[in-house]
């Protein structure tokens, strides 16, 4: 909609087609309300349950471009805010993705923010309170946030070690929305749609997911995610036999422990009808 008005750099980040998202609760309303108040949002939940898809869907719904940054352990404040580069005529300032979003009024999504270095998490602080500004230390500039700018982060409290936890001063700046794997019927609907498989096949894959999620804490750090189930579904859709698809998309990636893999494989076989498990 407003993409034409966006600065050139941001137009690439515009979302033109509706990303499929199946709401499981009031998350769309909460996010929309938070956006109306320009409150920063934290999405909590296990991997592969639809956090990223949800942000894409909301950006489309709100008509804002979406700048996504996947945080990693080398991500520094400069990588987010920007840095001077050398050009023939001298140094030029290169905006980082966060600065681009702040200036252009995009939604900035920082995925797995705890992975980033401490200085990177602190740089977002002024953006998440009443100041709504990004100080560019190196440039000596304070960039006021565009009225449409909003910050969203994702955070999976489960698998990070205790040393890698969000600081209390960071956590308390956000409105949180909790995500979990959807109820079986809903998840089947999602898998059927995303992987383009039959309802029966999707329901079978949901059973597979439930088996593995029962082993959370029993040797598995996480059960099979919705994303994993969709991958298995896509293999099925492309003609792979069921046991091969489950093995390739779920059993092999999820654990390196042979005992665990065998037990999970047996439990999966036990919960699928003979026709599907063949």
């Amino acid at each position: 909609m407003t993409t034409d008005l966006m600065p050139g750099a941001l137009s690439a980040h515009a979302i033109r087609d509706e990303p499929y998202y199946r709401a499981v609760g009031d998350e769309i309303e909460i996010f929309a309300a938070a956006y109306a108040g320009r409150l920063p949002v934290m999405l909590k939940g296990p991997t592969g349950c639809g956090k990223t898809r949800f942000v894409e869907h909301m950006a489309w719904r709100l008509g804002r471009p979406l700048v996504t940054v996947a945080a990693h352990e080398d991500l520094t404040a400069a990588d987010l805010a920007g840095r001077f580069l050398l050009a023939p005529e001298g140094t030029v300032w290169q905006n980082g993705p966060l600065t681009m979003a702040v200036r252009g009024g995009a939604i900035c999504y920082l995925d797995e923010i705890v992975e980033a270095r401490q200085d990177a998490t602190v740089v977002i602080h002024p953006l998440t309170d009443a100041r709504r500004a990004l100080p560019l230390e190196k440039k000596g500039e304070l960039v006021p946030a565009h009225p449409d700018f909003q910050l969203t982060i994702s955070y999976n409290p489960g698998y990070q070690s205790a040393v890698k936890d969000l600081k209390e001063s960071t956590k308390q700046r956000f409105v949180a929305i909790e995500f979990d794997y959807p109820a079986p019927a809903v998840e089947a609907e999602i898998v059927a749609r995303e992987a383009d498989v039959s309802g029966e096949q999707a329901r079978g894959l949901i059973e597979v997911g439930l088996r593995s999620r029962n082993l959370r804490g029993q040797g598995l750090a996480e059960g099979a995610s919705t994303r994993m189930l969709i991958h298995a579904g896509k293999l099925l859709r492309a003609g792979a036999p069921v046991d091969a698809a489950i093995r390739a998309a779920i059993l092999l990636p999820i654990t390196d422990e042979p005992d665990l893999r065998e037990a999970l494989g047996a439990a999966i076989a036990a919960s699928l009808p003979a026709g599907l498990a063949a």
Binding site: R211, S212, N214, L215, Q218, G219, D259, L260, E262, A263, L264, A266, A267, I268, A270, S271
Partner: peptide
């Protein structure tokens, strides 16, 4: 151990 895991998964 495998049996306990099998039971837990099911």
């Amino acid at each position: 151990r495998g049996l306990v895991l099998f039971g837990a998964a099911l």
